[in-house]
Amino acid sequence: MAGNLVQGALFTVMVIRAGLLRDPAFDTELAEQVRRSPRFFKNAPVVLDLKAADGFGEVAEFAAAREILRRHTLTLVGIQNALPAQFEAAAAAGLASFAPNAREPSRRVRPEPEPAPEREAPAPLPPASPVGRTRLVTEPVRSGMQVYARGGDLVVLAPVSPGAEVAADGHIHIYGALRGRALAGASGDKDARIFCSRLEAELVSIAGRYLVSEQLPADRLNLAVQIALVDGRLTVTPN
């Protein structure tokens, strides 16, 4: 085993505010959300945000939180915004630390995680082929709605409205106007692309790299385009 022992990758993870766990309505509301999109939540990783949360200085509290989330098919993987005491307890409970935290013993706090540098050498293993199947959406994705194709591609046969968000671990194809946000390669696949019949997006992202509306090249707006990650940069080319 030589080289490339550790590689960087960017992931989309759900974040839940720790205080919410104590809210009596939390259980029913989460259950309702999970019921609506079971595939989205199934065994999905969750980070607990401890910002302004009282307590959580004991290992047992993290174990309890893990148990609550487990009941909703979610997996607690780490914490964020921890105070030093909370940080220790979380570590003892086997939870990873996601920046930012008040003080981390071993790592520098970065305001924004930098993507892993592009490597010259070829990766030792090709990324696992996506296991999920393509998700097909035939109705407009409207403001406030989120659609996520876990482990596969997303095909939308209608417009994506401003204020709506579509995401996929694979490619995203939109046979209509993209006016909201689109996040392809949401689990870090840099080869993922976004295709749309008309670019009016609020945000486009591939494997964690993103462009907001005002960064989109003006001469590509309102055109049919594809968006790809080339040498670490998002490029928008007309179709």
Partner: peptide
């Protein structure tokens, strides 16, 4: 228009 879009989504779900 955006709020209308939102409410249409709610009607559909």
């Amino acid at each position: 228009v955006r709020d209308s879009d939102r409410i249409i989504g709610i009607l559909n779900s």
